[in-house]
Structures are given as C-alpha cells and as structure tokens.
Design a protein around this nucleic acid. Structure first.
Lengths: 270, 270
DNA sequence: ATGCACCCTCCCCCCGGGGGAGGGTCCAGG
DNA sequence: CCTGGACCCTCCCCCGGGGGGAGGGTGCAT
C-alpha cells in the first residue's frame, strides 16, 4: 500500500474527501495527474503535495465551476490572474442568485390565490423614427448589454421626446439569444458610435403596465398573454417595453412603471 | 394555426417563454398535458388557462426543483400544502447557499500564497467510556442530526468531565453517507433515549486545532493530511473532533477552537 | 396545387457524476 | 512460496434536463 510517502488512490481519497471515481475522472480530464502512474498495472500514486491542489478543485467544484474552467484556473501560474478568474465566477454566482431571488418573488405572486385582473388596452401605434442601439445578445448578457447601450444612448440624445424603450425578439426567450434594441424617441436621431436612427414599424399593440421592479415581470407577461388569447389575437413580432418610470427617475422600486406592448393581429375566427 | 382560442405549441412557447422542446418534454413527463392532442397528426394544442401553470413550472425549474417534485407541487390541490412544499425547497436552497459561502471562504484561504505552518501533535489516547449518540447519517443531514443529538446528549449528561466530541466515518465523505457519533465524557454514562455508553478504542492521534467557524475546516483537514503523510503515517479509522470552544461557549466565532484528531499508524518504511 | 412555416418522432450529445461487471495487483499471514 | 482479501484497473450503462439535427408529416394562404 505504501512506497516511500506515495499514496494509493484510496488513501488519497480519504485525505482529500474526493471519491476514488472522481479522482480517476480528474486524471482522465487532465485536471489532477497522479505523481506516478505504474505503467504495468495502471495504478495511480499521489503525493502529499497534491493535497492542496485537490482541495482547490474540490472547492471550485462546490461552486459549480465547470471542469475546463477549473483547469484554466489551475494552469494560470500568476496568483493575480487566478484570483481574477475566480472573482469572475463569483460574479456569475451572484447573478444566478439574483435570478433565484426573482424566481421566488414571481412564484409568490403566482401562487397567490387571488390574481387581480389586468388592465389591457389595444393601441394602434404609428411608425416612429428613434435613436437606437441594437445587437444580437444572449439572454444571460442582456442586463449588462442594456446598461451599456442605454448609457451610450443617453449620452448621444440631447432632447428626448419621450421615455426610453426596448424591443425584445422572441428568439431571446425561446433560444436564449436574439435581437435586442433599446431606443429613445427624439426629433433628429443622431448617428454616433452604436447609436443610429431606426424606424420602428407601425403595429397594433396589446398594452399593459407592470408596476415595481422586474423580478416578477414574467408574471405580467403571462397575464398579458392570456388576455391576448382570450381576445382572439395572435402575437406578431418582438415585444416592446417602455420605461415610464424607472431607476433613472427614482430609487423607490415600488413607483417604477414599465409599459409592456405585445404586437398582435386579429385572428380570423374559423 | 388557430382553431377557436386554442394555441399551437409554437404560439404557446412564445407566450410562456418556454422552448418548444421543453414543452414537449413536459408533456412526456406528464407535467403539462396539452388541452388537446390531435390523434391523427400528434399536434399539441394548449389553452390560455394553461399559461399560469406553465409559468409556475418555469419558476420552479429556475429554482432547480426536480421535475418529479414540480409534479408533486402542481398535483397538491391545497394551497397550504403547496406552499409548504415550496418552502421546503427554499430551505434546501438556503442550505446550498451556506455551502457555497463556506466554499468561497475555504477557497480564499487556499489561494492565499503564504500558508502558515500547522501545529500538529502525535498523541496516544487511551480507551475511554463516554455517553454517546450514534447513527448512520447522510452528509447533507449531518448538521441537523448533530443539533438533535447534542441537545439530547446535553440533557442526559449532568456532570461532563470534558468538552463534547464527535467521530466521523470516512465513508461519510467518500460515499456521502456514514457512521457518525457524538459524545460527552462523563464518569457514569447514562442510558436514556438514544444516549448510551460507548467505549472508544485506544488510538494514536495526529492532533491539530482549527480556529474559527467550520466554513474552512476542510482546509485544515487537508493540511493535517499532508502532515500525516510527510511523517510516514497512514490513516486508520474515523476522524475525531473535539469541540474545545464552540457556539455553546461564546457567540464570537473567531474564538472557537476545534481539535481534529486523525487516527494513524506508523507505516513500516520499505 | 404549391410553397412554406410549422409540427411530429427519434437518436445522439452535453455535464459531472454513480453503479456495477469482470479482471488484475499488492501484500500480510501462514 | 501460496493464498485470501483488500485494493486497483477499465469499460459500459444510468441519471437529469436539456440542445442539435435528421427525416418526414400538416395546416393554410396564395
């Protein structure tokens, strides 16, 4: 079992609290190579110096860092770069936590027995030319992208003639990636950096207003969807949000108001 | 595409932000049966009334509730029972969050360039008879089990002759389930409820002391493991912890002290 | 009647593990 | 030196909750 301070896989497992199976997997993945592999028998032998490495892997895995990322972290020799990669992951965990919190809020509202009825208005919107920033964005990156885009938009537009808005492609929610556009109406849309004029087509919108922060905005979306179907309409095109009152206006989330407009067309009943 | 307020799967997907694939999977799993399935074509048709259900599923999945549990929640008609099941899951999320926090603390300590050397003592411990509570426990349940067992132990032992301690089977960490024993030394161990006398065998222990709360105790375990190997010893039996200073003594975690003793035997060098 | 968007099923892949089969190795005791 | 048992090896299948893509049927407007 022992040859001069070298550990068989079972012993190493006991010392690191990683299962034998998992240690073998980490070997195959090139994450944690045994110090010695007996060529004849295939036996893996580890040294005590490998214990800290095994522990780092263990903790990273507890944080759900994917194995390739763990490898990248271990391979980066500079402690600074290593810390940066770890911090990067911690930010991702934080974002996930936010999503979890939002899901809990939504769920609470959904499970409430009495759902207040929704005020929905059918509104014909003419074609409008606005200053816009647009791109193909992954769902996970939408928030960060939105922050950058609005900042650029705000800097480029001097005299807005209305509140900012956004268009969100359905593919964003169905495939996790889609076209996103944020805009601000203004008399003469400039062309600066990513900001450029865009003419939004005329549409008929089913419009409702969501109150509060966006944690449970998906619930309002669902209710609007129900209304659309109940009124024999079908969805046609990217959803339009208008930020009537938002964090730019007040820090009190309960006063925030977001208008949700779903482009619709009348279904010829048959 | 439309037949009297009934939605094809694509339309329903757009309305609920669930992918078509996922909706089909939920159908197969019996989670969300379409209102109508065309017998000839196999086409699935949904109604607007199913949107809230789809949303509940979506939120639960965002909370990583397994599909069978989602089904259980949906099937429970009583809102109270439903809320209890959800609350149960939220507790599990909370526990996971604790583990994540601990992993971050451990990682921070592991990635610190300078590791202070560990004070380890080799100590021969004679056989002792103690009052104990023991059971086979899953790793996830250890904390809850420990709380119950110590409470029972404290109530049963009047005149302890030393601090409380615990024995943790290696299988607990390797297989996620193992034998756990908590004890308190006393002159005449009683036999009350789960509390009974146990004679702990004499062992040679490699002993070190962990300072602070247990978030990063795994790191100390690893360092002790390194020391054990470096001193040509091998692990033999369940680890022994002794809670010198703990939450029972003070609320300040920085003053807590846990003695970790790893049973060892000398390796005949060859 | 034709085009085309939509829908169907079926199979394989992803990740990070676990279970178990079937067989080789190490080593202490006799 | 032999034997038994603990230990180790590889290989294949399974899990959950999806995604990609092939190959083929349907619904409906023009």
């Amino acid at each position: 079992m022992h040859r001069g301070g070298v550990l068989a896989i079972g012993e190493f497992s006991r010392l690191t609290h990683l299962s034998v199976r998992t240690l073998r997997r980490y070997h195959d993945a090139g994450l944690l190579e045994p110090a010695i592999v007996d060529a004849a028998s295939g036996y893996r032998y580890y040294t005590a110096e490998q214990i800290p490495t095994a522990q780092v892997i263990h903790r990273l895995r507890e944080l759900d860092v994917p194995l390739p990322d763990v490898q990248r972290i271990l391979r980066s020799p500079d402690p600074g770069a290593r810390a940066a990669l770890v911090a990067d992951h911690l930010r991702r965990l934080e974002a996930e936590l936010d999503r979890t919190r939002a899901a809990v809020v939504s769920l609470r509202r959904l499970l409430q027995p009495a759902q207040p009825p929704l005020d929905v208005e059918l509104r014909a919107v003419p074609a409008t030319t606005v200053a816009a920033v647009e791109d193909d964005v992954a769902l996970d990156d939408v928030l960060a992208w939105y922050a950058g885009a609005t900042a650029e938009l705000d800097a480029a537009v001097d005299a807005p003639t209305g509140p900012p808005g956004g268009l969100y492609d359905n593919a964003l929610f169905e495939d996790g990636r889609g076209h996103v556009l944020v805009h601000r109406p203004t008399a003469a849309p400039p062309r600066v950096g990513r900001v450029h004029p865009v003419t939004l087509p005329a549409v008929e919108l089913a419009v409702t207003t969501h109150a509060g922060d966006h944690d449970d905005i998906a619930v309002t979306y669902g209710q609007l969807g129900s209304w659309v179907v109940a009124n024999a309409l079908a969805v046609a095109g990217p959803v339009r949000e208008t930020y009537l009152v938002g964090p730019r206006d007040t820090t009190d989330p309960t006063t925030w108001r977001t208008e949700i407009g779903w482009p619709v067309f009348r279904v010829t009943d048959r």
